[in-house]
């Protein structure tokens, strides 16, 4: 988001940690956190689909809490830490939740997926053995138009099992 000198509004010196890395940038107060992550930092895995807080596609973790990045101004994340889908796992090293979504076909077009993953990861941390009802409740703030949610629910169950199994393995 380049802004020429002449149009420069009053900027705010923002410093925050994103996926473990300190990022510093001067931003306009009105810049939404979602736009900052996507366009200023190039972390385009965070998707924007409604910008009024209903769809959940833009969910990121702010100090570990899942929040709508379209309803938070970037300046409000000053001094805080943000984790985006890019911070969960990599193509050759998928996070167990990501791996479960692949196994259970919890992804179709994939547009809502990053926001679902960033919602499910903290949910499973609090609910290691969730019921289907709890899972659906946890997903209620994430709209998906492709899957009818069934394979997503299955993926969350699978992830819970996998993570539980991994935790039960004695440490080497």
């Amino acid at each position: 988001m380049a802004i020429t000198e002449s149009t420069m509004p009053k900027l705010f010196d923002l410093a925050l940690t994103v996926n473990g890395t300190l990022r510093e940038q001067a931003v306009e107060p009105r810049l939404l956190l979602s736009d900052f992550l996507r366009h200023d930092l190039g972390l385009t895995g965070t998707h924007v689909a409604c910008e009024h807080g209903v769809c959940g596609a833009c969910t990121v973790l702010l100090d570990g809490e899942p929040v709508r990045s379209c309803l938070i101004f970037a300046v409000q994340a000053h001094g805080h830490s943000v984790t985006t889908v890019e911070g969960l796992g990599a193509v050759d090293r998928l996070h167990p939740v990501q791996e479960a979504f692949r196994q259970a076909h919890g992804v179709q077009c994939g547009f809502c997926t990053p926001g679902i993953l960033t919602s499910v990861v903290p949910f499973l941390a609090d609910h290691p053995d969730p019921s289907e009802e709890e899972i659906r409740e946890a997903l209620s703030g994430n709209l998906c138009r492709c899957t009818g949610y069934q394979h997503i629910v299955d993926a969350v169950k699978l992830a819970a099992q996998a993570m539980k199994a991994a935790n039960e393995q004695p440490a080497r």
Partner: peptide, 12 residues
């Protein structure tokens, strides 16, 4: 409380 908005809304 659980009837308010969505899980992510309630975090903020």
């Amino acid at each position: 409380m659980p009837k308010i908005g969505y899980p992510q809304i309630r975090r903020r």
